[in-house]
Computed example of a mutant assay.
Amino acid sequence: MDTDHIALIVDEPIAGHFYWVLQKQDGGDCRPIDAAEGPMPTYGAAMMAGIAALQRRADARGPDAGDLPIVTAYVDPREDLGPPAIH
């Protein structure tokens, strides 16, 4: 069983520039394991790209992953995820 805990973080270090980061918990510390190559225009776009990165990692686990859910995500309904489509 895979017991890795990976968190998806969306950061906005500069106004209007959103980046996703995947972080793995190692004991009491978190370390980045993957991140966006460049900024995205909205929080929602960065969140969706980060979820896609999580899915790719899960798909790479292969068929021996058992009955574990592939990707589970919680999105706070109060968050503004931006427009539903990128134009």
Rank of each mutant, 00 (worst) to 15 (best):
12 E>K: 07
55 Q>R: 15
76 D>T: 01
66 G>W: 02
26 D>W: 10
80 D>W: 01
45 A>D: 07
28 G>L: 11
42 T>M: 04
72 T>G: 14
75 V>E: 08
35 A>F: 10
17 H>A: 15
35 A>S: 15
76 D>C: 10
50 G>K: 04
27 G>M: 00
60 A>K: 08
42 T>A: 03
22 L>Y: 02
40 M>D: 04
36 A>F: 08
65 A>K: 06
52 A>F: 07
77 P>C: 06
49 A>Y: 05
67 D>L: 13
75 V>C: 14
78 R>E: 15
48 M>R: 15
81 L>V: 14
77 P>G: 06
14 I>Q: 13
62 G>N: 08
19 Y>C: 04
15 A>Y: 07
15 A>N: 08
12 E>I: 01
25 Q>L: 14
82 G>C: 00
26 D>A: 13
42 T>Q: 04
45 A>R: 09
65 A>M: 09
48 M>A: 15
8 L>R: 01
58 A>F: 06
39 P>E: 13
70 I>R: 11
53 A>Y: 02
62 G>M: 08
55 Q>T: 11
83 P>C: 03
48 M>F: 10
47 M>I: 10
48 M>K: 10
66 G>S: 03
61 R>Q: 14
66 G>A: 09
14 I>F: 10
22 L>P: 01
43 Y>E: 10
46 A>P: 00
40 M>V: 02
24 K>D: 06
82 G>D: 03
42 T>Y: 02
20 W>Q: 00
41 P>S: 09
79 E>M: 12
18 F>V: 03
28 G>A: 12
79 E>D: 15
73 A>M: 12
68 L>I: 09
13 P>M: 03
76 D>E: 13
31 R>Q: 13
9 I>F: 09
39 P>Q: 07
47 M>E: 11
27 G>V: 01
83 P>N: 02
34 D>W: 00
17 H>Y: 06
57 R>N: 11
62 G>S: 07
8 L>A: 06
69 P>H: 03
27 G>A: 00
20 W>T: 00
31 R>E: 14
62 G>Y: 05
64 D>C: 05
62 G>W: 05
58 A>C: 10
15 A>T: 14
53 A>H: 00
30 C>Q: 12
